[in-house]
Design a protein around this nucleic acid. Structure first.
Length: 699
DNA sequence: ATAGGGATATTTTTT
DNA sequence: ATATCCCTAT
């Protein structure tokens, strides 16, 4: 029986679903059923005779793609239907696999994740002797971020430094050298990082019209979810894929762009009609998720945004309460408050899975987690440190990677350092002995010749020998590495039982993989879901705003949403910060169903001491008072002032003029060394000054 | 040369 | 939680 679209959808959704050919831009406010519209559109296309295999659905997370495809299949009552769906990265991976030679990888490639690329950068920086003795050369994480930002925004490194890393501007030359060394190294090692997947896809499509033509024939309908989160590269891919037929529908909400840190630019959604001039614009403004008071607050929040497709959310849900804004003096009070409120909601009859606590960064929940544990409240945490980034998982994977790619110096480094009586010097000697093209045989030869003194190396050689010469399933390989690694794990970590359990989990999890290579590729693109739960049965959800997509609750807490933190004390005057803050709060608020609690302070950490104190947020205070219930504000600002004074007194002798007064002046200070600070003034100028004393001299 | 301890710095968010 | 640096003991 065909689907009754008219009955299932409102007029705006129906419009999007029934749209025939040509480009379309669907501007969909939060909770307006955009996912539903996309799912129904996929079903509609298939039902009206479009071959499923000619539909391509692009999303940002694999989970989103799977969910949507599953829903579409359910609608169509089919087991499978061959619609291609996935992330930009996974689709690029698939396409590039069959055309690797055309982009300079004649022997194929392996995907390296962020951690690997940081390790490569460190290796190259050491090798090129860039670090020298000068202080404050950027850490590898910063280097990776700078280079990746430059690639993703298609902006020169100089501009990225000026904009985001003024502290590292003196190293412009070194970073540029490093960036080009990195690019060369990856090609030689047959590596592609996440950014390469996108740039090489663009190169492939741009330089090879015949490949683009084939793909245009293959994918006659392109649908893109969360288009506000695409960066320049991804926008380019959409443009190239749609160039031949123009059947491109993108869906998004310019107010919900939350990935600026990885180069996402909501201007791409604003500019879509320029790339596809024929584009129809369809707006979904009817919210099905939240009550009107929540939407009033959400509307008030986005009201201040400077540019965008103006929309005003309205709802079909009656009643509901205004959101609460609780101002609390410190983090412990915040945790107690949330736990108390949760207990209250439970006694009102809500179930734990109907309640969520959202926050910006994984570590914002640490204190709350302690409180929840103390009270025996079971929770599941989404976001934060990812599974594959845990040290023991990386150790395990390093050994497996050597089997797939013996040239992987990073993995050699990691695996060798674990061996008893092997340190940096020995690692260097081994790697030197392995030469230009390292191989397992080369390593075995080295061990035979020189491994007499270190039985650990012999064991490693035995393990790798066994794994490479005999036939094993992926699970069996994991098991063998696990057995070899177990003693080291016990020596290295206090909490080894938990970690060992996680290795066993990987062992089970890999049962579904036919090949090692397949497993490693997938684990790079789709790391196992983190779930730090502490019980069984029903859970409270605690999650970063970013990881919370697609979930709905009846009560939501938003904690520590705002954050100022050393070393670059973020300025609430910075328009970008305010914009980001607005978006996060908007996203959080429109995901609430009934009750919404904001509770903050902003956490400001003092270097070294770890002491934190709270700062009232100007932005939250700007919320129209009638849009929230304000709780517990008394005493807060005074407490803050006292803490600031105490910190000053502790750090500077009496009579000292303190420069880093972030409160009234809006001046931003970044500490360079113990006695030097870099100050950014209102006009944007930067100066390096000696810290703290009355005679401020340029350093 | 390496191990081990302790202090220190940094850490968002995702592919 | 992890990496890094600096120290001392082996």
């Amino acid at each position: 029986m065909p689907i009754d679209y008219k009955k299932e959808l409102n007029p705006a959704q129906l419009d999007a679903v029934m749209h025939e050919r040509g480009p379309a831009l669907v501007i969909a406010g939060a909770g307006s059923g955009k996912t539903r519209a996309l799912v129904f559109r996929v079903a509609r296309l298939v039902e009206s005779g479009v071959p499923a295999s000619s539909i391509l659905l692009l999303t940002f997370t694999r989970r989103a793609a799977n969910e949507m495809l599953t829903r579409a299949k359910t609608l169509l009552k089919r087991e499978r239907f061959g619609v291609m769906g996935g992330t930009f990265h996974s689709v690029a991976n698939l396409v590039l696999k069959s055309h690797a030679g055309l982009v300079g990888y004649p022997h194929g490639f392996v995907i390296i994740d962020r951690t690997d690329s940081e390790a490569v950068l460190k290796l190259l920086a050491d090798e090129l002797d860039l670090i020298k003795k000068r202080r404050s050369f950027p850490k590898k994480a910063a280097l990776a971020d700078i280079i990746s930002r430059s690639v993703n925004t298609e902006k020169p490194i100089e501009e990225v430094l000026f904009r985001f890393y003024p502290l590292h501007e003196p190293f412009l030359g070194e970073i540029e050298t490093l960036a080009s060394a990195y690019a060369g190294y990856k090609v030689r090692q047959r590596f592609m990082d996440f950014d390469d997947l996108l740039t090489n896809m663009i190169r492939l499509l741009g330089e090879n019209p015949e490949v683009r033509g084939q793909l245009g024939q293959r994918f006659k309908h392109i649908l893109v979810d969360e288009y506000q989160d695409v960066n320049r590269l991804q926008a380019n891919i959409v443009k190239l894929l749609g160039a031949d037929h123009g059947n491109v529908m993108v869906v998004g909400d310019d107010s919900q762009s939350i990935y600026s840190f990885r180069g996402a630019d909501f201007r791409n959604i604003l500019e879509f009609p320029e790339i596809f001039p024929e584009a129809r614009v369809i707006k979904l403004e009817e919210n099905f998720r939240s009550t009107q008071p929540i939407l009033d607050a959400a509307n008030a929040i986005i009201h201040g945004a400077q540019r965008g497709y103006t929309k005003c959310l309205f709802t079909v849900r009656e009643g509901g309460e205004r959101p609460y804004l609780a101002v609390l003096p410190d983090e412990a009070a915040q945790s107690r408050f949330v736990a108390d409120q949760v207990a209250g909601l439970i006694s009102e009859g809500l179930k734990l899975p109907e309640i969520a606590v959202l926050f910006r960064a994984g570590f914002h929940s640490f204190d709350l987690e302690v409180e929840l544990n103390r009270r025996g409240v079971p929770y599941v945490k989404h976001g934060g440190v990812r599974f594959v980034e845990a040290a023991h998982i990386k150790d395990l994977l390093a050994h497996l990677r050597l089997l797939v790619n013996p040239g992987d110096l990073i993995s050699w480094h990691r695996a060798l350092l674990l061996v008893e009586r092997v340190g940096p010097k020995t690692v260097r000697r081994v790697l030197h002995a392995l030469g230009e093209s390292p191989s397992l045989e080369g390593f075995f030869g080295f061990v035979e010749k020189e491994g007499g003194k270190t039985p650990g190396l012999l064991n490693l050689a035995k393990l790798l020998g066994k794994l490479s010469t005999e036939k094993f399933t992926v699970s069996e390989m994991v098991g063998l590495v696990k057995r070899y690694y177990e003693p080291m794990l016990k020596a290295k970590f206090e909490n080894h039982p938990k970690r060992l359990g996680e290795l066993e989990y990987v062992e089970d999890w890999t049962a579904k993989y036919a090949g090692l290579r397949e497993f490693l590729d997938e684990v790079a693109l789709d790391p196992l879901e983190t779930s730090g739960n502490n019980g069984s049965g029903e859970f409270l959800t605690i999650s970063t705003v970013h990881s919370a997509k697609g979930l709905e609750w009846r009560a939501v807490f938003v904690i520590s949403l705002l954050e100022g933190r050393f070393p670059s004390i973020r300025s609430m005057d910075d328009p970008d910060d305010l914009e980001e803050e607005r978006r996060l709060l908007y996203v959080a608020s429109t995901r609430a169903k009934e009750k919404l609690f904001f509770s903050y302070p902003v956490w400001v950490f003092d270097r070294g001491s770890g002491r934190a104190f709270a700062e009232p947020s100007r932005f939250l205070m700007e919320l129209p008072p009638e849009s929230v219930h304000l709780l517990e504000q008394r005493g807060h600002e005074q407490m803050f002032a006292e803490k600031v004074q105490a910190r000053r007194d502790a750090r500077f002798p009496p009579g000292t003029r303190v420069v880093h007064d972030i409160l009234g002046t809006g001046v931003v200070v970044e500490v360079v060394t113990d006695d030097k600070v870099r100050v950014r003034f209102h006009d944007g100028s930067l100066r390096l000054l000696h810290l703290g004393y009355a005679n401020l001299e340029p350093a």
